[in-house]
Structures are given as C-alpha cells and as structure tokens.
C-alpha cells in the first residue's frame, strides 16, 4: 500500500483525489448538494437518470473535468457508457489521468 501511494503521488492525483474532484465537479456543475454527491456509488445513474444532466450540462461537465484534472477528453471518447453511471465516469477519468 505504501509503495502504491508513493508512486501515485509522483505520477499525479491519486484515485481518491480523482474521486473527490469528480464528485465536487458534479456538485458544482449540476447544483447538487454535497450529501447527494457523497452518496454516489459506482452504480449511481448519471446521464438519463439525473434531470440536471442534459446535453449542455454534459459539455460543461467535460470541460470542467479537463480543466480541474488537466486532461484532454476527445469527442470520440464521449459515449453513453462513460456517462451512464458514476462508476463509469470515474473509471474513464482515472484512465485519462493515467494516460496524460
């Protein structure tokens, strides 16, 4: 565990930092309460489940994720699967941070 943490610190934000940042972005972009985003788990539905998340909000959400996590999300990366659940979006974002 110690070794994992040390290497994560060197290569960028850790998984839990990405998780916290992503929850904060969803809270800010969608105007949700902190308690609601704290309650998200991997299966929590996003696009098509949260009325706040329409296509304009998706554009804002992705741009904010890029800015706060210093990654680039290409048009072709954006599909239903990455936005369907919180777990899907988190896994996608983690992969992008590792790539970047």
């Amino acid at each position: 565990m110690t070794a994992d943490t040390a290497s994560a610190a060197k290569t960028g934000p850790s998984r839990s930092e990405i998780d916290q940042t992503l929850r904060a972005i969803l809270r800010d972009v969608l105007g949700l309460d902190q308690a609601q985003v704290d309650g998200f788990d991997g299966e929590t539905g996003l696009f098509g489940h949260l009325p706040e998340l329409d296509s304009m909000a998706v554009a804002g959400l992705l741009t904010e994720i890029e800015d706060r996590l210093d990654i680039v999300i290409e048009d072709e990366d954006v599909d239903g699967e990455m936005l369907e659940t919180y777990g899907g979006l988190l896994a996608f974002t983690e992969a992008k941070v590792v790539e970047g």
Binding site: S55, M56, V58, A59, T63, E66, D67, D75
Partner: peptide, 28 residues
C-alpha cells in the same frame, strides 16, 4: 478562465448536440 477553455466548451456543446441529431461534426 482561459480563452481556449471557453471556446472548447462551446465547440463541444455544438458537436454533442450535432451527434444527438445524428450529424457527425468533430470539434477539430
């Protein structure tokens, strides 16, 4: 905010809307 970030958000909104309408328009 950075100028490019603002532009990128607007490009993305248009390409996402186009995709929903079945039109392929890349930001590039």
């Amino acid at each position: 905010v950075k100028p490019r970030q603002v532009l990128r958000g607007m490009l993305r909104a248009r390409s996402l809307a186009a995709r929903e309408a079945g039109v392929d328009e890349s930001s590039e």
